[in-house]
């Protein structure tokens, strides 16, 4: 019986297979309940419209950006991918709540696959949202001056950054008692990171004490890099700093979340 039942693969190959199985399951859920995806897309659209048409006139930006819409869209894209990463916290908390994780823990699957599968499916979701918001950006007048390759690099950079953050949100999802609380718990974290940043407004407009935080925090660095690449304007070492933050977060938060997953009851 063993012969027809079991497949002989290495532990690593099976771990990858487990990650894909979990990711596929999450993506199926996304397809089956499209409303969650619709709202995940609607929210950044609202932000685009709000800043593009309501606040734009009140926010002066440097001449090298051309217009505020060029300044804004790369920022909104970064914000959108970060908000997308919050889905990891919500999804994991939901699985815990429903007792599904309990079943997974009694299976001979790779321990990290539940977390990795979730971050992978959230990445896929983020790519889709990013494409839609990019389209919306062009519709409202975004005209980047950088090369196409630089544009792709910028997209890759923010997706990687958001992916690494996902592992941190996984930790929150595992620690929260339910999905509503998980979502609320991410708020005090992403609110200052996305708003006290160069996503919407130039740093020079902020009080000097806030500038110190805003200039050096990872989201601003990512926004600077993405904007610089897309528009073809100088952005110093922002790309490398952003990548360093992302890798650092992954190396620290990945093992941390996996450890919590093994323990959480």
């Amino acid at each position: 019986m063993t012969d027809i039942m079991h497949d002989d693969r290495s532990a690593f190959a099976w771990a990858m297979s487990d990650v894909l199985t979990i990711a596929r399951r999450n993506i199926l859920a996304l397809v089956r309940i499209p409303s969650s995806l619709v709202f995940a897309i609607l929210q950044p659209i609202m932000f685009v419209l709000l800043f593009r048409y309501v606040f734009a006139g009140a926010i002066p930006v440097g001449a090298n950006f051309g217009s505020y819409v060029n300044y804004l869209i790369p920022g909104i894209l970064v914000q959108t991918t970060i908000f997308g990463a919050v889905g990891t916290a919500i999804g994991l908390a939901e699985d815990l709540q429903r007792g599904l994780i309990e079943r997974f823990r009694a299976l001979p699957m790779a321990r990290m696959a539940v977390l990795a599968g979730r971050t992978v499916s959230d990445l896929a979701r983020n790519i889709l949202i990013l494409l839609v918001i990019t389209g919306i950006g062009f519709l409202v007048g975004f005209s980047p001056g950088g090369s196409f390759v630089a544009y792709l690099q910028a997209s890759l950079l923010m997706l990687s950054f958001a992916y690494c953050l996902s592992w941190g949100f996984a930790y929150i999802g595992l620690a929260a008692p339910n999905s509503e609380t998980a979502q609320a718990m991410t708020f005090p974290l992403i609110f200052p990171l996305t708003f006290a940043s160069s996503i919407f407004v130039p740093l020079q407009s902020m009080p000097s004490w806030l500038q110190v935080f805003a200039r050096n925090q990872p989201v601003s660095q990512t926004a600077e890099a993405v904007r610089g690449l897309m528009l073809g304007v100088p952005h110093g070492n922002a790309t490398y700093i952003s990548l360093a933050w992302a890798l650092g977060a992954l190396c620290l938060l990945g093992p941390l979340s996996t450890r919590v997953y093994k323990k959480v009851a």
């Binding site: 079991h6 497949d7 001979p108």
Partner: peptide, 25 residues
């Protein structure tokens, strides 16, 4: 608690558990 995945079909639930048990497709 009958921990089945609500968003999957009956067949998909079993297929998922089967692959997580590392059985042949």
């Amino acid at each position: 608690y009958a921990t089945v995945d609500e968003n999957l079909t009956g067949f998909e639930n079993l297929r998922m558990i089967g692959s997580l048990n590392h059985l042949k497709k």
